[in-house]
């Protein structure tokens, strides 16, 4: 605590944004991870424009099921006869979209919840946080299963369900941030000048919590992609003919005993390193913002 205070007294004169990027760049692993994420996004969205493959015609697929890698099918085909390289792009789009949207849902709701809880404080805070504690006591996948048992499967449902079970961390962090900011001098100053609560939250508390929010959202995207793949693996992912990486892994696993490795390893690899990358970038962002807090 003492060391932190001492450092705060000697501010370094750096432009905030430049310094953020400079600090991020120093973390070589995070730069590699960020490059990888961008590459995967390009691969999934730009790839299909250059690499055409059958992803929807189940009839054409009948004649080409479970083929090993060969000319025409660089990574072989799956049990429906769909080309796996194209399938990875196609499924990747779903996984990325659902992951990102779910993280956004989680961030919006979690931030609102946390802001209200931390800013209002008192009894409201106590009740709201006990609810989060209670939700944290339910293992995530069980709650997901409970929701999937009730509603019909669709992409939108997956976004809502994953977002609806992924916001606890965001809420807790935003709350502690808001709780700390609430008693700062500048907030009191705004209030003494007659600034409304809305104005304080919008102009002062929220901008100061942005760094925390960005960091935690990065982790949430990775977590959502993981959770989606777990659901896909339990045959509760997006319905055919669409697919996601978890569903692909599930079909792949059923054929791995026949030594059809091409149905598992390419998806598993691309997917695993994507989630690792999100964790690395999140870690680096945390360092960036913590340092900025100290040099401010």
């Amino acid at each position: 605590m003492l060391t932190k205070l001492r450092k705060r007294k000697e501010p370094k004169l750096l432009k905030a944004q430049n310094s953020a990027w400079r600090i991020f760049r120093q973390n070589k692993a995070a730069v590699v991870a960020l490059t990888y994420i961008i590459a995967v996004v390009l691969f999934c969205y730009v790839g299909p424009h250059f690499y055409h493959s059958n992803q929807t015609d189940a009839f054409e697929g009948l004649f080409s099921t479970n083929l090993p890698p060969q000319a025409g099918f660089p990574l072989g085909t799956d049990d429906q006869g769909f080309d796996i390289l194209g399938r990875i792009m196609y499924g990747g789009q779903t996984s990325l979209e659902v992951g990102l949207l779910a993280a956004l849902v989680a961030m919006t709701w979690g931030a609102l919840y946390g802001l209200v809880s931390g800013y209002r404080g008192g009894a409201i805070d106590a009740v709201l946080m006990r609810i989060v504690d209670a939700l944290l006591a339910i293992p995530g996948l069980f709650l997901l299963l409970a929701l999937m048992a009730v509603f019909n499967r669709s992409e939108l449902l997956l976004v809502l369900v994953l977002g609806g079970t992924g916001w606890y961390g965001v809420a807790r962090l935003t709350r502690s941030e808001a709780l700390a900011l609430r008693n700062r001098e500048y907030v009191s100053a705004v209030r003494s000048m007659g600034g409304s609560n809305t104005r304080i939250i919008r102009r002062h508390v929220l901008p100061n919590s942005v760094s925390t929010l960005i960091t935690v959202t990065t982790f949430t995207v990775g977590d959502s992609i993981l959770a989606l793949s777990a659901l896909g693996f339990l045959q509760l992912g997006v319905p055919l003919p669409k697919t996601d990486w978890g569903t692909m892994l599930n079909t792949g696993v059923q054929s791995i005993q026949l030594n059809q490795w091409w149905q598992v390893y390419p998806v598993a690899g691309i997917f695993l390193f994507l989630v690792v990358s999100f964790n690395y970038v999140g870690d680096a962002l945390r360092d960036v913002f913590e340092v900025r807090l100290r040099t401010q």
Partner: peptide, 28 residues
């Protein structure tokens, strides 16, 4: 987990809810 998944696929909502509750009690 195994039982919950099989009952989820069969849409056996009461059992899935009971499983969620029991697991939450165990966690607490």
């Amino acid at each position: 987990g195994f039982i919950t998944v099989s009952h989820t696929l069969g849409r056996d909502i009461p059992v899935v809810m009971a499983a969620t509750l029991i697991i939450a009690i165990a966690t607490v």
